[in-house]
Write a protein that binds this DNA or RNA. Structure first.
Length: 766
DNA sequence: TGCTCACTTGTTTTT
DNA sequence: CAAGTGAGCA
């Protein structure tokens, strides 16, 4: 009804892109040109013109983008219609479809999802079993080969037959990858698990082997929209083509200049060739509404250095703005201090902390900023890296969930069978594993079978039975209790909480806080689903979603905070003031990557900024625990000099060792460093690492300060004891519970010792 | 059985 | 400088 009102908010080219709906189309959207606006309005327009919400499929790059877009559409057309849109990432949409169709490809609907840590662990297991050299077949490397194969839709059989691939693998001394790949798929299938890539590959396979299902969805989705098309890979591309084959109402949006995921199989050619396709209408959005003219011009001057691109003329009619500031720091710590100080200064001038983002090339760079920001009291939030969902405690709890939902998930089994410790150690586990392997079934199936066949002690068997009973008690509630209740039960009854409650150490407190966070997360999930009209929300539902969540998806909008993240995760976001840090040769651009892609990445970084953009580099920085000498990034000079200000003088050191070097050849890199580092490089005092021995004495001889004795109800503290070997001493502290209870005792002659009460031989003196 | 200590090992980027 | 993996002691 308010159609004209929103169409009025669009410029000419945006409006054309919204109104054209007669066939496949491509929107080339320059940075900040309002493509999200086009997508939202287009969907709103479709809903106002006869499309039912559930017949519209919109694929986004992140969950957050999907959520925000949905909210914006809801504002246009009302939540009652917006909620039924199919909107989400490739992964989440297809996991939804796969859950409904799992049986058709030999999975069950309760399949669980492996993250890359799980995948790597499985690969390690296979490599060990095949008795291959773990040094050649590092899980990282193997996984990325497998992942690449999947993204190119190469099955294990295809891979084995691919002469070229096999030749390459052989020359890289990993000739058996094809066999690992094959085993890997078999195992995943056996365990009823899928990894991230599988979610796409199996959907594709499902459509291939069951044309009627493919037809069904292709008819069901009457209009398909895909955001960030420049970052799709082959599977995604083919899935989109399949799904849009019936109605041919397809709208893809992207910007070749922002293609930054080739390492994940994204291929810029899909968008380029799509543009050349007959019958495809191409629209260009070139007016940037986000940034100052200077920022837009600066980024244009940079990206023009790329050969391979669709030429476009991105312009801004905003304020002219200030030149990009280039700042030089002495080292990485100095860099973080400069950034912090600048932020504080601008904060005093009225910017909120969430008006700032610090963008870096690698996650490892965040630590320095964290420390400095904490020290200076600048509130910050880190995205990615060792995130909330990846922290051990959370992963372990999720592993409980997984094992309860899908008991064949051996990786989940492995993680928690002895967490918290319940007397099922390595030896027992290995026995279980061997039998499982021999019988070709999951660990859980063995656990449920006859344990007496194995050479296990009585206690072992009791412990195993107890574990089994624990998990089974949760399983009984899978479809009885909702996710919130069952999740709560699991956390409380699995022994994790009790384990943490035993001592109020800071670590335990932070873990408890994390667990609390997780519970809130589940609660929010349930509330959201209930709002969306679902009635039964089970743990399996939560799990499916949680597996695909990243911390960018967690809404944490309490206090304004400075955002710290990689350039990759900043894609699609915008900030008033952006600091692109670590602008050094070899770091950004990264040595191992393709220059044009790195340049696009830098382009993405700069174009996040609305008003101020700072580019910083350090003269030296710690890498690998070693101080290395750095040179400014060549990208800095590629920005036309009239759009930037500040230092990049820097004479070239031509000694044959041109780059900071952290390649394989250790000797070379050492000699490279010693040459530059010499003695003349002043170092921060706190960078000098205390000798190991000192540290050791520190931590073991000084008892931790917090000793809240009462809560354990223990009467041992302060008592004098006599130990079999160490003689007389005073108990300073007791912590832990059950078998893990230990006492810190200061002995008269033997110093301070920690005694495990289960083992220690002593008597209490009155 | 399990934790602590020492050692090796390695760094893009993410759903 | 991590984080993760393998040998001694309680």
């Amino acid at each position: 009804m308010a159609e004209s009102s929103y169409l009025d908010e669009l410029n000419e080219s945006q409006r054309k892109a919204v109104l054209y709906n007669d066939g496949p189309m491509l929107v080339i959207a320059g940075a900040g040109s309002g493509k999200t606006r086009v997508l939202t309005y287009k969907i709103a327009y479709l809903l106002d013109h006869g499309y039912e919400p559930w017949s519209v499929l919109a694929l986004t790059f992140t969950n957050k983008a999907a959520r925000e877009m949905k909210e914006r559409i809801a504002r246009q057309v009302g939540i009652d219609r917006a909620r039924y849109l199919w909107m989400g990432t490739f992964h989440s949409i297809f996991s939804r479809i796969l859950r409904m169709e799992a049986e058709k490809i030999g999975f069950t609907s309760s399949f669980t999802i492996y993250d890359s840590a799980d995948s790597k662990s499985l690969i390690d297991e296979i490599v060990r079993e095949m008795e291959l050299d773990i040094k050649d077949y590092r899980s990282n490397r193997v996984l990325s080969l497998i992942s690449n194969a999947k993204n190119r839709l190469l099955s294990p059989e295809d891979y084995a037959k691919d002469k070229e691939q096999r030749r390459i693998d052989s020359s890289h001394s990993v000739p058996k990858v094809y066999e690992i790949y094959s085993q890997y798929c078999i195992r995943c299938h056996q365990r009823n698990v899928m990894d991230f890539d599988d979610l796409l590959v199996y959907t594709y396979q499902l459509f291939e082997t069951h044309p009627e299902i493919c037809d069904y969805y292709a008819s069901y989705f009457r209009y398909i929209l895909v955001d960030e098309y420049q970052d799709t890979n082959l599977v995604q591309h083919k899935l989109v083509l399949k799904l849009s084959s019936k109605h041919r109402h397809l709208c893809v949006v992207g910007d070749d200049a922002q293609s930054i995921y080739s390492f994940r199989g994204a291929n810029i050619d899909f968008i380029l060739s799509f543009a050349r396709e007959r019958n495809v209408r191409v629209f260009k959005l070139e007016q940037n509404y986000r940034s100052t003219q200077t920022i837009v011009n600066a980024s244009n001057s940079l990206i023009n250095k790329n050969e391979n691109q669709i030429r476009k003329n991105v312009f801004s009619e905003n304020d002219k703005g200030e030149p990009l500031s280039i700042l030089r720091a002495f080292n990485d710590i100095d860099e973080s201090e400069i950034v912090a100080n600048t932020i504080i200064e601008l904060h005093h001038k009225g910017y909120a902390y969430n008006d700032f983002a610090v963008l870096y090339r690698t996650n490892a760079q965040s630590t320095c900023f964290e420390n400095t920001f904490r020290k200076k009291g600048v509130p910050y939030q880190i995205f990615g890296g060792t995130s909330f969902y990846q922290s051990k405690e959370i992963k372990n709890i999720i592993a409980y969930f997984r094992l309860v939902v899908n008991s064949d998930d051996d990786e989940a089994f492995r993680r928690i069978v002895n967490y918290p410790t319940r007397g099922i150690g390595d030896t027992t586990f290995v026995k279980l594993k061997n039998v499982a392997k021999q019988k070709n079934v999951s660990l859980w199936k063995i656990l449920c079978g006859d344990l007496n066949e194995m050479k296990l002690t009585k206690t072992n068997i009791t412990n195993l039975h107890r574990f089994r009973e624990l998990i089974e008690s949760f399983k009984r509630d899978l479809t009885v209790k909702d996710a919130e209740e069952l999740g709560h039960d699991i956390i409380c009854n699995s022994g994790i909480i009790g384990n943490l409650n035993r001592g109020l150490t800071p670590e335990n407190l932070s873990q408890l806080a994390k667990i609390d966070n997780l519970l809130n997360d589940i609660k929010r999930f349930c509330e959201k689903k209930r709002n969306d009209g679902s009635s039964n929300i089970f743990l399996a539902d939560y799990l499916m979603e949680a597996a695909l969540l990243t911390d960018a998806d967690r809404d944490d909008n309490d206090v304004p905070k400075v955002m710290l993240m990689t350039v990759h995760s900043a894609k699609g976001l915008e900030f008033s003031n952006v600091f692109v840090v670590g602008m050094e040769d070899g770091l950004f651009p990264d040595v191992t990557s393709e220059v044009e892609e790195e340049r696009r990445l830098f382009y993405v970084a700069i174009t996040r900024a609305e008003t101020h953009c700072y580019l910083t580099y350090a003269k030296c920085r710690y890498r690998y625990g070693e101080l290395i000498r750095c040179h400014p990034s060549p990208f800095l000079k590629e920005i036309d000099s009239c759009f930037r200000k500040g230092v990049i003088e820097e004479q070239v050191y031509n000694s044959g060792i041109s780059q900071p070097h952290w390649g394989k050849d250790k000797e070379l890199s050492l000699s490279g460093c010693s040459m530059f580092d010499g003695g003349e490089m002043p170092q921060e005092p706190h960078r000098f690492v205390a000798p190991r021995k000192l540290r050791k004495i520190d931590s073991s001889s000084v008892p931790a300060s917090s000793s809240v004795g009462q809560m354990s109800g223990d009467s041992l503290e302060g008592k004098h004891i006599e130990h079999e070997r160490f003689g007389r001493g005073v108990v300073e502290k007791v912590e832990g519970a059950g078998d893990n209870r230990k006492a810190t005792v200061r002995f008269e002659n033997a110093g301070v010792k920690q005694l495990l009460l289960k083992f220690a031989r002593f008597k209490v003196c009155e």
